[in-house]
């Protein structure tokens, strides 16, 4: 891993001044106080851009639910962070719906019991 000297005034060793990786790397490593063998090469990496920047044009910026969604979330591969809308809690959802359905069933049964006992009294 090498530190390039990227920005600088015209005539400096900066990459955006001379467009030469070797001088930019020599200068960068020197400023960082690190050794440089003079040899370098490039490898392919992936970079995660912050979604609040570098999205152009403005009217095509991403909407919330491009990430905050269960399906096809742009952040589907980013684990280790809780993302509302994408991540739920399966255990709580299961227990929660069980409790709600049990309440509905209990209430229906009770209502049925009252209806039956009432019709018996009237009939």
């Amino acid at each position: 891993m090498l530190v390039p000297h990227l920005f600088g005034p015209p005539g400096s060793d900066a990459y955006w001044a001379k467009y030469d990786w070797k001088t930019a790397l020599e200068s960068g490593q020197k400023k960082a106080g690190l050794p440089f063998s003079g040899q370098f090469d490039f490898v392919e990496t992936s970079y995660v851009f912050p979604t609040t920047h570098m999205v152009a044009p403005k009217d095509r910026s991403v909407s919330c639910n491009e990430c905050h969604a269960k399906d096809n979330s742009r952040m589907a591969g980013i684990t280790g962070v809780y993302l509302p809308g994408r991540d739920g809690n399966r255990v709580i959802e299961f227990l929660g719906w069980t409790a709600v359905l049990a309440s509905v069933a209990g209430v229906l049964l009770h209502a049925f019991g009252r209806a039956v006992s009432r019709s018996r009294k009237e009939g």
Binding site: D87, N89, V100
Partner: peptide, 20 residues
């Protein structure tokens, strides 16, 4: 994750209460 889980559980508890 924990705050969201407690908040979700509370939501279910309120919904169950509402049914009854």
């Amino acid at each position: 994750k924990v705050v969201a889980a407690v908040h979700l559980a509370g939501g279910f508890a309120i919904l169950s209460f509402l049914v009854v």
